[in-house]
């Protein structure tokens, strides 16, 4: 690891001030991804601002929705009684990610900021536009089994590795941030970005902004399932994952929420597929049709061509399990 200054912040204001002073500063909370990347010299911050002592850990119900402090641990959120009961998609997605130990360390804010697991991003001897803009994308014509089928550009075909993000986008969550210029709320849909020609930017967050909380509006979903397909039965990143949430009135779909992980540079909300399900009766045909709609515009890059089939299959299966048909 490169040497860095280590600063423990005790207030939000001090933390933002400490990050603003140093152009190459980073916040550290759980550290599970940042330290990993620092050890491999993929990220080389010159200052770490430790925010663990900030009072941002609370989880509370707000207007039937949910407020989750940015420093709430992934495990705490996954076990939280209200979340398990009212937002099971989030609990299931969190428990599908990483390991029990990592979930005890990783925070909600850190999970939002998790960087891609593209092996070229991690290997400093290979070109990577995300790591070193302008050097090229090694995955484009390389080993791209884990890579994007939606929204990729020749600059980057990496995927966002988070499970939590998939559930959050399906749940219409928002991210509360605080920075030197004040506070703002960013919709989950807008928080992560597609690579475009600036794959070095994962999110629209400004460097000096601190995530303070995630909020989720009241959920009407009655039937939920988070389905993750991976190369081993636990402790692996998704080949494809699907968050499926339905509000069913008898067999009629009143509301549908669908999002996918492992397929794009950001958690991938399937809005058109959701619309196609609205008002329909639950059936394999309807699910299949939604999956077909969801797959429009998908593109494989060789090793990941299988996702063109696995993704719609997983959508159908997730809906099937959610609706218990």
């Amino acid at each position: 690891m490169k040497q860095f200054q280590y600063i423990r912040s005790v207030s939000q204001k001090a933390a933002i001030s400490a990050i603003t002073q140093e152009p190459k500063a980073k916040f550290v909370a759980g550290g599970t991804n940042l330290l990993d990347l620092m050890k491999r010299h993929v990220m080389t911050p010159e200052r770490l601002v430790d925010i663990n002592k900030l009072p941002l850990r609370d989880i509370k119900e707000e207007n039937k929705g949910l407020h989750i402090g940015a420093l709430a641990l992934n495990s705490t959120v996954a076990e939280h009684a209200t979340i398990v009961k009212k937002f099971p998609l989030l609990a299931e997605a969190l428990n599908a990610g990483a390991s029990a130990q990592l979930r005890n360390m990783a925070t909600v804010g850190g999970n939002l900021m998790q960087r891609t697991r593209c092996p070229y991003f991690y290997d400093t001897t290979t070109p990577c536009n995300k790591r070193e803009p302008g050097t090229g994308c090694s995955a484009l014509n390389g080993f791209n089994r884990m890579h994007a089928i939606f929204g990729a550009t020749p600059h980057c075909i990496a995927v966002n590795p988070s499970d939590m993000n998939v559930a959050l986008i399906a749940l219409d969550a928002s991210v509360q941030v605080s920075g030197p210029k004040g506070d703002r709320i960013i919709k989950m849909q807008d928080f992560h970005r597609l690579p475009g020609d600036q794959p070095e930017k994962d999110t629209i967050l400004d460097k000096n902004e601190l995530i303070t909380a995630v909020t989720i509006p009241a959920s009407t979903l009655t039937h939920n399932h988070y389905l993750k397909v991976r190369d081993r039965n636990s402790y692996a990143f998704a080949l494809v994952s699907v968050a499926a949430g339905l509000n069913l009135d008898g067999k009629t779909i009143k509301v549908a929420r669908l999002a996918m992980g492992g397929v794009a540079h950001k958690p991938w909300r399937l809005t058109a597929a959701e619309q196609s399900l609205q008002g329909k009766q639950v059936s394999i045909e309807a699910f299949q049709q939604a999956a077909d709609i969801a797959m429009q515009g998908a593109k494989g890059y060789g090793h990941n061509d299988f996702k063109l089939k696995l993704a719609p299959n997983t959508i159908v299966e997730a809906l099937k399990i959610a609706s218990r048909i």
């Binding site: 092996p119 070229y120 290979t126 090694s138 039965n233 636990s234």
Partner: peptide, 23 residues
């Protein structure tokens, strides 16, 4: 291995999968 570089690309225990308890 990515043969363009002659270098392994699944070279840690997250990318090279050995069986875990659940397997």
């Amino acid at each position: 291995m990515d043969h363009r570089f002659g270098r392994y690309m699944t070279k840690d225990l997250a990318d090279y999968h050995v069986p875990v308890h659940a397997d």
